[in-house]
């Protein structure tokens, strides 16, 4: 067994331990709360979803590059489907949308698998950005043309470009880190999601000042606790990163903050479109976008911070 697999298994054991605690806590809450309040129900459903997500991610991370790229390609597909459901579109956009799903998305992930950094960082922001509006224009443009093409591009940037920067971490050739990049994915996902979780619970408990009054229930107190927790988790996980304890904490904190910003931006979009959730595929959480919004935002920032200072 390689060092990487051993580390992954250690990490996995830790997460499974946390999930056991959450499951037991959920069952205790359920026994205590005989009337079956919806909050407890949601919590228990969420814990079940976490089990499934941890299992799938762990399997992919153990299996290696192809499995990881395929997993995130499917997550992108589900997220893009949720996003495009809410964007403005007319018949003229049909080809642009067909191209987004069946050409842009697979090509982006093939480029990631191939490891062509110059290509996968420019493909969507440059080539898709310029070509898709041409397709819509050829089909007759029409009303709200600029808004429509912008929304399609936004959907691709968030759901494909940003999301694909999680598996893109595998491509980085970090000095003295060897082929352990798969651990960086685990690091990023864990610090962001655990920070989110702490932000959620602390915010519900002692939150007072809303970050964005009309958009979300997130509070500065909650974000502060989440940030402290993310930094702590990051520092504790320094052994799986190339950064050292101090910088692991800093990187975890930055990833968490960008993630919170992302969650708020996507909440504002939901509000604009008058929906509660992006989808329904993850029980208790809503859609893929609801679950992964913070990871999507944090991924490119984390990728480039690592790329410029550690490669």
């Amino acid at each position: 067994m390689t060092q990487t697999s051993a580390d992954l298994i250690m990490l996995f054991a830790g997460v499974v331990g946390l999930l056991f605690l959450a499951t037991i806590a959920g069952e205790i809450l359920r026994v205590r709360d005989a009337d079956g309040s919806p909050v407890v129900d949601t919590f228990v459903t969420r814990v079940h979803s976490w089990w499934a997500m941890v299992a799938i991610l762990a399997l992919a991370l153990i299996s290696g590059r192809v499995a990881i790229v395929v997993l995130f390609a499917f997550a992108s597909f589900a997220a893009l489907r949720e996003f495009m459901t809410l964007t403005q579109k007319t018949r003229a956009d049909h080809w642009a949308m067909v191209a987004s799903f069946y050409v842009v998305l697979p090509v982006q992930y093939i480029l990631i698998w191939w490891g062509q950094e110059g290509l996968f960082t420019s493909f969507i922001p440059v080539y898709a950005f310029l070509l898709l509006p041409i397709l819509s224009m050829l089909r007759g443009a029409g009303a709200s043309f600029l808004s429509r093409i912008s929304e399609t591009q936004w959907a691709l940037m968030i759901c494909v470009f940003c999301a694909s920067h999680v598996p893109a971490l595998l491509v980085l050739d970090i000095d003295g880190y060897g082929a352990r990049n798969v651990l960086l994915i685990a690091f990023l996902v864990l610090v962001v999601q655990l920070g989110d979780l702490m932000e959620y619970f602390a915010g519900r408990r002692f939150g007072r000042t809303r970050v964005a009054e009309t958009i979300s229930r997130k509070t500065w107190e909650g974000v502060g606790c989440g940030l402290a927790f993310a930094v702590l988790v990051g520092a504790l996980l320094a052994w799986i990163t190339p950064f050292g304890v101090f910088w692991s904490g800093v990187y975890a904190g930055i990833a968490f903050l960008v993630g919170v910003g992302g969650a708020l931006v996507l909440a504002a979009i939901k509000q604009d479109r008058g929906v509660q959730n992006w989808g329904h595929l993850i029980p208790g959480q809503g859609g893929f976008v609801d679950q992964l919004d913070s990871v999507f935002f944090a991924a490119p920032v984390f990728f480039y911070m690592t790329r410029y200072f550690w490669v």
Partner: peptide
Amino acid sequence: SNIMPKGEVIPVPLA
């Protein structure tokens, strides 16, 4: 109707 507008043959994945 957005998934496959009339006259189109390739369905776009939408919820």
